[in-house]
Design a protein around this nucleic acid. Structure first.
Lengths: 186, 186
DNA sequence: TGGTTTCGAAACCTGAGGTATCGAAACCTA
DNA sequence: TAGGTTTCGATACCTCAGGTTTCGAAACCA
């Protein structure tokens, strides 16, 4: 009896994820979120638009996967609570400042505002893993961590959305100071 | 010599602003931002789509005017710095929680992410007046007030965008406490 | 009654997300 | 080498929203 990992018949799928992720960030960075159409992303990746839609059911879900790949695991190594909070805020700010990442994040967040289905995907696939890891690392209840995420991500995205530029280091310092004072002391 | 206020010839413009503002909030509240098309807003206001485009150059600019009308002047009456900060945060949270206002705000913010022209409008017409009033009331430099706006508005919109619901009172309390501690003390 | 402007209705254009079709290509097995 | 199965790319297509154009009707003034 063949194992479940036996190769299925037919032409195997091409491994396009890495190329698509890179092409997405590049295209979003160069053209902005709205002008980074799925067709342009596909062209930048050297594949057909239909190939993207065979793997991701919508542009929003593609972007969520791009962000998951770009962010990777959060740095939650030990230290004081203040250390954990500080490092995760700086990590988030640095990732959002990478070319294309902030635009893609703000863009998909925008789409989710009027798309409840995408909001569920964004919340469950992108926010929840980091939220759970933070609950674990900080020993805080869910609603406190959700508030923390609202403050940090909301602030960083608002700056990005209003100015088109990521938040400057001095303001990230202020954000760290304010949030750490609230969560590490309170 | 006739004064500048002499009535010009031809059919006078109908006063549709109030009806359009109300219809916009109602439609956005019922259908969400993306499905609240200009055509549907016009129908809800009982006028033609072309009449809207004669007055506002784009959906984004219409929404900015709707928000300006909905927010009105910020409450910056005297008291301690902490009083001013507290009242303005609670005022912003309450306005964003009004039916349609939060959705419209998050929606136009979303559009602005990939529309630099709209970003300028949003920044100059909506943010700047409140920013200047706050600089005056608090005696804070521009960059500190901009950071304040990023934190407060960003947090409230992030909650609205991720959950579809405005922030609960308990979390608004936490936001007030955190921000006041940072700005009134620091 | 005529001049001027706005209104409403409708057709229209552009562009983006997403789907359907179909022949060609890539893999496996007999 | 031939046949079966699946994916790929190209293309045409659909829907819908923002925004524009056109044009006759309506509202005002002189």
């Amino acid at each position: 009896m063949p194992s479940a990992s036996a190769r299925p018949p037919g032409r195997p799928r091409a491994g396009v994820d890495a190329a698509v992720f890179a092409a997405t960030l590049r295209t979003v960075h160069e053209l902005g979120y709205a002008r980074a159409t799925v067709e342009r992303i596909a062209a930048a990746a050297g594949i057909a638009k239909t190939t993207i839609y065979r793997r991701w059911p919508s542009k929003g879900e593609l972007i969520v996967d791009v962000l998951l790949d770009a962010f990777g695991p959060a740095p939650l190594a030990g230290g004081t609570r203040a250390d954990v909070l500080t490092s995760v805020i700086r990590w988030g700010a640095a990732k959002i400042a990478e070319p294309g990442v902030g635009d893609a994040f703000a863009g998909v967040f925008s789409d989710a505002v009027s798309d409840p289905a995408l909001r569920v995907v964004l919340s469950s696939r992108l926010q929840d893993p980091y939220r759970l890891a933070l609950q674990d690392a900080l020993g805080e209840p869910e609603h406190r961590v959700l508030f923390f995420v609202d403050v940090v991500v909301g602030t960083l995205l608002h700056r990005m959305g209003m100015t088109g530029e990521p938040m400057a280091d001095a303001d990230v310092d202020a954000l760290v100071e304010m949030v750490v004072a609230h969560f590490a002391a309170g």
